[in-house]
Simulated scan of single mutants.
Amino acid sequence: MNLIARLGLRYPILQAPMAGAQDEALALAVTAAGGLGALPAGMLSMEGLDQALTEIAGQGPLNVNFFCHHLPEPQPERLQRWRESLAPYHQELGIEPPPPSDTPSRRPFDEEACAQVEKHRPAVVSFHFGLPEAALLERVKATGALVLSSATTVEEARWLEQQGVDAIIAQGIEAGGHRGHFLSDDLSLQMGTMTLLPRILEAVSVPVIAAGGIGDPDAVEAALALGAEAVQVGTAFLCCPEATTRAVHRRALLEPDTPTAITNVLTGRPARGIVNRVMRELGPLSTAVPDFPLVTGSLCELRAAAESQCRGDFSPLWSGENRQGCREVPAAEQLAWLASKLPSPS
């Protein structure tokens, strides 16, 4: 199956779904310009998802992305210890901590989400952190949607192919945001995109999409030359006006010398972001952090207070390692630039 031809794309470039930094505006802009836009659904209510999918209906192929994490058991003692570790920051900023809560801020793909897919029938449905249970996956496939999911190792890629996905996103260690691993939490198994990509290509027969560190025309060209059918790009779109990226995040993205690191102190699950204060002082990786996604709410007040002072000390400044291509230009212009070293579309 030729993924690009089947979707009718002008460019073999997928916009990565980026929860918290975009809505349907960026997705529609990328699709209108000839790529595949993506709508992240992991942080949307079912009402919000229904509204977004209604608004984008009939405007070209789009990828709707869902998380497939397992909700942890309540962890009141662990959450309390984590709150205590954040107390000095609340005191410093003169704000009250949020009330204790172990309510997850992100929901995995479930019956209600599946019903929305069946109602709106998007062209592509993608998953992060594995796949939903078999019965739900079969219902998604029955809508005619192409099913994609992320693999961070060859073993994960093989598993995804066995479950019947239509294409695999090979997520290298350079990628911004959450790691998509699901068979093992061992980060030492993770590898760079240009190393992972050929290994997955050799191991599976379905199309493979390269992701991670692909933020400029050279990287796009290199990944396709290695055999990827398409690339997935996230960070390079974060400064486009159609993105909802916060001001402190945009400023950090445009400072190319600030390092990134993989951290779990912002959400409870490893994710790559620009190094900030809380990552330096409590992480970047900590065994004390409650499990994903229970920890997210504990930083809300700190984040808001710091951002009101134009600081991203407690903000998830997600970014891939390659952000040299971040530009404050419309998504259509950015997409055409990313594709500028590829043969002209026929």
Rank of each mutant, 00 (worst) to 15 (best):
132 P>C: 02
132 P>N: 07
133 E>W: 02
135 A>Y: 03
136 L>Q: 07
136 L>P: 02
137 L>I: 00
139 R>K: 15
139 R>M: 14
139 R>N: 15
140 V>Q: 02
140 V>P: 04
141 K>L: 01
141 K>Y: 01
142 A>P: 09
142 A>N: 09
142 A>C: 08
142 A>H: 05
144 G>Q: 11
144 G>F: 02
145 A>V: 13
146 L>M: 14
146 L>R: 13
146 L>W: 09
148 L>C: 10
152 T>S: 15
152 T>W: 09
153 T>Q: 11
154 V>Q: 12
155 E>I: 02
156 E>S: 11
156 E>Y: 12
156 E>V: 15
156 E>K: 07
157 A>L: 01
157 A>F: 02
157 A>K: 03
157 A>R: 02
159 W>Q: 13
159 W>C: 13
159 W>K: 10
160 L>H: 00
161 E>Q: 06
161 E>T: 00
162 Q>R: 09
163 Q>G: 01
163 Q>V: 10
164 G>H: 04
164 G>W: 01
164 G>L: 01
165 V>G: 06
166 D>R: 08
167 A>L: 11
167 A>G: 00
167 A>H: 04
167 A>Q: 03
168 I>Q: 00
168 I>T: 06
168 I>W: 03
170 A>I: 07
171 Q>C: 10
172 G>A: 10
172 G>V: 08
173 I>F: 08
173 I>K: 01
173 I>R: 10
175 A>V: 10
176 G>H: 02
176 G>N: 05
177 G>N: 12
177 G>M: 04
179 R>C: 05
179 R>I: 04
180 G>R: 14
180 G>P: 09
180 G>N: 13
181 H>R: 12
181 H>K: 10
183 L>W: 08
183 L>S: 06
183 L>G: 00
183 L>I: 06
184 S>L: 07
184 S>V: 07
185 D>H: 13
187 L>S: 00
188 S>P: 05
189 L>Q: 14
189 L>D: 01
192 G>T: 09
194 M>E: 11
194 M>F: 15
194 M>S: 12
196 L>T: 08
196 L>P: 01
197 L>M: 05
197 L>Q: 04
197 L>W: 03
200 I>T: 03
201 L>Q: 15
201 L>W: 13
202 E>F: 03
203 A>F: 01
204 V>L: 11
204 V>G: 02
204 V>N: 09
204 V>W: 14
205 S>Y: 06
205 S>H: 15
205 S>C: 10
205 S>P: 05
206 V>A: 05
206 V>M: 07
206 V>Q: 10
207 P>S: 12
207 P>V: 09
208 V>P: 03
208 V>W: 05
209 I>T: 07
209 I>Q: 07
210 A>E: 02
210 A>S: 00
211 A>E: 14
211 A>S: 15
212 G>A: 08
212 G>N: 10
213 G>I: 08
216 D>P: 05
216 D>Q: 08
216 D>G: 01
218 D>S: 12
218 D>E: 13
219 A>F: 12
221 E>D: 14
221 E>Y: 12
223 A>T: 01
224 L>V: 05
227 G>C: 06
227 G>F: 00
227 G>V: 07
228 A>K: 09
228 A>N: 04
230 A>S: 09
230 A>I: 13
231 V>D: 11
231 V>C: 11
231 V>A: 12
232 Q>L: 14
232 Q>A: 13
234 G>E: 12
235 T>E: 07
235 T>I: 04
235 T>K: 04
236 A>L: 02
237 F>S: 08
237 F>E: 09
